Amino acid sequence: MRYFLCFICPPAAVLTTGRIGSFILSIILTIFFWIPGIIYAILVTSDFYSARRNRRVVRAIRANRY
């Protein structure tokens, strides 16, 4: 859903990740240039998913260690 939102409204996709600084930069990029705003939103969304995946792996490793 977030990737679809990246193409329709890039700042909204970045806002759903909870990163306020990235949201402001996304607004600036989208206002001046639409395509860089989309690319930036895709990168932020991808980073959000990889960070979430990493947190799950670390949590599982810690749960199995003790």
Rank of each mutant, 00 (worst) to 15 (best):
I38E: 15
P11I: 02
A51D: 13
W34L: 14
Y66W: 12
D47N: 10
R56E: 12
F4M: 11
R19L: 00
P11M: 01
A51M: 13
Y66Q: 06
D47F: 10
C9I: 12
C6W: 04
P36C: 10
I24W: 09
I61K: 12
I28H: 04
R55L: 11
I42H: 06
A41S: 13
A13F: 01
P36L: 10
N54V: 08
F33H: 11
S22P: 00
N64E: 13
I24Q: 04
I28E: 02
F32M: 13
L29N: 05
A41C: 08
Y40L: 08
F7Q: 00
I61C: 07
T45C: 14
R52N: 12
I31Y: 14
F23W: 08
N54R: 10
F33K: 04
R55F: 09
T45K: 05
I20W: 11
I24R: 06
F33M: 13
A63R: 12
T45M: 08
R55S: 13
R65Y: 01
M1Q: 08
D47H: 05
N54L: 13
F32Q: 11
F48S: 02
F32T: 14
V44Q: 12
C9K: 07
T17C: 07
Y40K: 05
F7M: 02
A51L: 14
R65I: 09
L15F: 05
R52K: 15
T30V: 06
A51Q: 13
V14G: 01
I28C: 10
A13R: 00
